[in-house]
Design a binder for these strands. Structure first.
Lengths: 193, 193
DNA sequence: GGCTTTCCGATGCGGCTGCATCGGTACCGG
DNA sequence: CCGGTACCGATGCAGCCGCATCGGAAAGCC
C-alpha cells in the first residue's frame, strides 16, 4: 500500500478552484488545465479525482450548495431567534446571498442555474439542493403561523433568487434588495396577523 | 454598386439562429460555425455582418429583448384592460415568460443573465433592457394606486425572474408559478385597499 | 534493500474554437 | 455586353479543449 493521498481533501481543493474560476470568469472558464493550475495540482491529479469534467462540475455544485446550506443552518443556530418571524428574515437574507462577501457564491450558483436550463442532470442536482432550504422555510413559516406555508416558501425562494440575480446585474444594490425582501416579509406578517 | 443584400434582414436571421442554439444547448453552443449552419449562411457571411462573435451575441440579446418587450406592449394594447390591476397581472405574467411557447426565450434570457454576471458589457445591455419593463410596471402600479410603486415594481420584476428560473429548473411548473405570481399581486391589492 | 503497488506529471492526439485571408462569383451601371 | 466592385465561401492558422497514455517517482511489505 504505497503513497496514499487524502482524496477527499484534494477533491475539495479542486472544487474550490473550480468555484473561483466560475466566479471570476464564468462556467466555461473552468477548464481542466486552468482548474489544475489554480488548485496547484497537475492535470493528471484532477483527472484521477474526477473521471470526467462533468463529474468535477457536479461535485463543485454540491460543494457550494452544501456551503450555503451549512451557513444558513449555522446562522439559525447561532442567533437565538426571538421569533420565527425574525429567524425567517435571517434565513431569507442569507439565502439571497446579499452580503458582499457571498457575491462569489451567488455568481457561481447563477452560472449553474443557467446551465441547468439545458442540462437535465445538473437541474436534478440543483433541485435537490433547493429541497432543504425550502423545507426549512416551510417550517419557519408554519411556526410563525403564516397560512399557505409551502406556497409562501416557494414565493420567497423565487424572490430571493430573483433579487440575487438583479444584484449581480447591478440593477439593484444589495441594500435595496434587502429592503425589498424585508418589505415582502413585512407584508406577509401583516397579512398573517 | 453590385450585389446588395439586406443586411438587417440577415442580421435578424442570424440572431434567430443564435437564439435557437442558446435555447437548445446553451450560450457556449453558439459558435460561429454552428450559427452559420443553422442560419443557412456561410461563416463568411456571419463574419461580414458582425465584426466579432461578441458583437453578434450583443445583437442577439437586443433582438430577443425587443421581442419580449414588444409582446408585453402588444398584450397591453390588445387587451382592453378593465383595470390597471388586471393589466398588471397580464404584464407580469408575460414578463415572467410562463407560457410554454416562451420557454425558449426564458432560457435564452437566463443564459445572458448568467454571462452578464461576469461580463460588464452584457450587464449594461441587460440593465437597459429592464428599464422599459420596470417603468411600465411602475406606471401601472401607480395608476392602480399602489403605494411605493417603484419598490413594488422592482420586487415584482425580481419575483418574475426568480419564478422563471425555477420553472426552467423544473422545480415549479408554469401553472404553479402563475398562481404564486397572482397571489403576490392579490396580496398587494389587499394592502392597497 | 529490493519489489510491488499505487499514484502522478508530462506529453500526445483529434477535434473544435474565433478570426484572417483570398480567389471567384454575381451583380449593377454604363 | 462588359468592366468594376461588393460580396461571399472555402480554407488556413494558431490556440485551446477534454481525454488517453505511459514512464517514472514514492511508499509500504517481505
Amino acid at each position: 500500500m504505497p503513497k496514499q493521498v487524502d482524496h477527499e481533501e484534494r477533491r475539495r481543493r479542486i472544487a474550490d478552484a473550480v468555484c473561483g474560476l466560475i466566479d471570476e470568469r464564468g462556467l466555461e472558464a473552468a477548464t481542466l488545465r486552468d482548474v489544475a493550475a489554480r488548485a496547484e495540482v497537475s492535470m493528471g491529479a484532477v483527472q484521477r479525482c474526477f473521471r470526467t469534467k462533468d463529474e468535477m462540475l457536479r461535485f463543485a455544485l454540491r460543494h457550494i450548495g452544501d456551503r450555503i446550506a451549512d451557513r444558513v443552518r449555522a446562522r439559525l443556530l447561532a442567533g437565538p431567534a426571538q421569533s420565527a418571524a425574525s429567524a425567517l428574515g435571517h434565513a431569507a437574507t442569507e439565502l439571497a446571498l446579499l452580503r458582499a462577501e457571498h457575491r462569489a457564491e451567488a455568481r457561481i450558483w447563477l452560472a449553474f442555474v443557467a446551465r441547468a436550463a439545458v442540462d437535465p442532470g445538473l437541474a436534478e442536482l440543483l433541485r435537490a439542493g433547493y429541497a432543504e432550504p425550502e423545507d426549512l422555510l416551510v417550517r419557519l413559516l408554519a411556526e410563525a403561523g403564516a397560512p399557505g406555508a409551502r406556497r409562501e416558501a416557494r414565493t420567497l425562494l423565487a424572490l430571493a433568487d430573483g433579487l440575487t440575480a438583479h444584484v449581480l446585474l447591478g440593477r439593484l444594490d444589495a441594500e435595496e434588495a434587502g429592503e425589498l425582501l424585508h418589505a415582502h416579509l413585512a407584508a406577509l406578517w401583516a397579512r398573517t396577523a
